[in-house]
Amino acid sequence: MTLASRLLLVASVFLGVLIASSTPPGPASWVYLSAIAFVELGVIKVLNKPGTILRALVFLCFFVLLSLTMRLIGIFLFNNPLNPATTVYATLLLVEAFLGITMLLQLVSPSELVWLAGKVGFREAGKVLALVLTHLSSILLAYSEVYVVVKLKKTRSILALKPLLVYTVEYGGQINEAIHLYGLPDPVLGKTPPSWRDLLATSISLALILAGILLLLR
């Protein structure tokens, strides 16, 4: 898929969430919210293994249950709980915004993000973001090792900061050395010819945007 159609898809989802949040829950808003969820889950299904869609649904249900539980607590504590429909609607909006971010990170690669950041004047910040995304897992792995050590040493957990700090500084030094050797190049984006997927994604995006406008004008 081309970057343009992927970005349009992500933008339409975020715009949809924004429109849905500014309209009160009603039959039309519910249908619109479901349509956004359908698009998000569809993208997750296409991009991931079959089990992921199940996990996304569990994630969605978990938050709905959480909101209903909070409502129950509200009944007992304040005697003035929110309307259940409003509670679930607001929760779904939040979950869909989260899924939208997941979708953005899956549909747009880090080098494309850097390229986009460069287009809006944040080129260096974008490169730093790329470096963080590349090296974060390696640093987190070291952090988890320190967690095991500190847990077994039964020492004050604040002391875990010391090896973490030393390791991070050391790792930063290695990256610094690498940047001197290889530089910090701008991303180069390959050209992707449009395909039927782009047509599908653009149609879905435009439909979502149009439906959102109709919802606002209702």
């Binding site: 690669s109 080098s111 490169k127 690498a178 290889y182 910090l184």
Partner: peptide, 12 residues
């Protein structure tokens, strides 16, 4: 380098 990962800027 000893840590070859350090040379990578982009994760792909």
């Amino acid at each position: 380098l000893q840590n070859p990962r350090a040379t990578l800027v982009y994760p792909i």
